[in-house]
Simulated scan of single mutants.
Amino acid sequence: MTQNPATDEPNPDVDAEATNEMAPREAVEALIANIESERDDFKDKLLRTLADMENLRRRTEREVADAKAYAVTSFARDMLGSADNLRRALESVPDAARGEGEAALKALIEGVELTERDLLKTLERHGVRRIDPQGEKFDPNLHQAMFEAPDPAVAKGMVSKVVQSGYKIGERVLRPALVGVSAGAPKAPEAPANGASEGK
């Protein structure tokens, strides 16, 4: 409090002025703090919204790319039966008939082979590739084991026979390859125990 110099008593008019000057300053500072808090809140919401929009854009791009890559999945799966039938038709023709058969039979075989190649090329243009795992390591993600058999020529765990080719579309398996898996070389017969041979 300020004092009146003439009377050494407090001067109420001066105190009131000082209080009035302090009140607006505190109010302005409180208002600025409030505005800055709102600004920070809006900035945070804006940054979150921008991040969400970027994530949505990426997800949408990925979904559109997947839709383009895998749109023909159902159709391609239906066409695999035709490809299998063409392959079976070619495999059913004996080798002797291929080399020494009549001209009409040779023409038929060549036509079926040409049709099969054309069908496979068409499927490849649409992202469908054949899986032919002969001699590869068995992979349960790409192959379906039909049997396991000893095979001295093929190491254990490797595909020794392809029963039916598999197909992939993009990075997805459209149909696993049906395969036979090698169990390795057959086990040698065990030698009889010493006691058994002596008793004979």
Results as ranks from 00 to 15, higher is better:
N20T: 05
N85V: 00
V112M: 07
K45T: 12
D44H: 07
M53N: 15
R59Y: 07
A51Y: 08
D8N: 15
T7P: 01
I32H: 10
L56A: 15
A18W: 05
A89W: 03
M22V: 12
L105R: 01
L80D: 07
M53E: 14
R77L: 11
L56V: 14
N55G: 14
E17K: 04
M53T: 14
A6T: 06
R25M: 12
N55E: 14
E9I: 04
R48G: 13
D78L: 11
E91K: 09
G99L: 10
V93Q: 09
D41A: 14
R48Q: 14
D66F: 04
R98D: 03
N20R: 05
R48C: 04
L90E: 08
A6H: 08
G99T: 12
R58D: 15
V14L: 08
D78I: 07
E38R: 15
P5K: 07
E36S: 07
R88E: 11
L47P: 00
R48Y: 07
A96Y: 09
Y70M: 03
D8W: 07
T7A: 04
E26T: 06
I109P: 05
E100M: 09
A83R: 05
V64P: 02
D66W: 02
M53K: 12
A71N: 10
P24Y: 05
A104M: 02
T73P: 00
R48D: 12
A23C: 00
L108R: 06
L90K: 06
S82T: 13
A97Y: 01
M1L: 04
D84T: 06
P12I: 05
N11Q: 02
K45R: 15
S37I: 02
G99N: 02
P12S: 03
A76D: 08
M79R: 13
